[in-house]
Amino acid sequence: MTLSTQERTGPGDQAATGVVAIEATRLEKSFGNAAVLRGLDMKVRDGEVVAIFGANGAGKTTLLRILATLTRPDHGTVSIYGNDLAREAERARLSLGAVLHSPMLYGDMTVEENLKFFGRMFRVPGLSARVLEIADRMGLTPRLDQRVRELSHGYRKRAALARALLHRPRVLLLDEAETGLDEPARQVLDSVIAEHRAAGHAVVMTTHSVERGIAASDRVLVLAGGRFALDEPSSSVTLTDVTRFYIEPEPGDA
């Protein structure tokens, strides 16, 4: 069942022929004696939505943090639109938007202040208008003047998504982004993913909601033993295909 990622393409024509957005080669990462990634290869093209599954500790978050330039791999290379993260990370980050486990927002600043701060960091043109636009898109307009500390978990996640989308990234990294979201917010997230795909951009998402992940994606990857044990078009994958690889790593293994 395991196929070379380089040889695989997504099921859609656009994904099959699109520009390579993310290319990871022979990635290795260990924490102490625990090897999390062992020579992992990965290629994601424009217009492709890739869902990564795996048991707890399989290395999904580590992989996304490496792609987001937050964690250095021990070995291997990653490039985002041809920008090698070891040498051109700043340029690569212009193309990246990430929602990881925590919202990465300042609790004592309002939603608007947070968005404007991060917008300035990305030098977003027409920032004030863009903040209003993205706030409206995320259903955050009534909360713009509220401090992030005072928001519910769901609204913090919406604000985190707004922060990630503010600079119109071409690659969206979502690490269990749907966790804690109510149904309307999940619908917003789903529509963001769909719009991103329709715009010819790439999405890499991890989720523990396997059925939802399969439905939302073009391609399914399952991390097990530090490599992708499954790499298939979502249309040909079932829940059981994914969960049969959910083997808890041994202590000290990953």
Binding site: L70, R93, L94, A98, S102, M104, L105, Y106, G107, F122
Partner: peptide
Amino acid sequence: AEGDTLDGLMLTPVS
């Protein structure tokens, strides 16, 4: 560190 905002800063294209 409390809000993982250091990660948020590191995600920006700022050296």
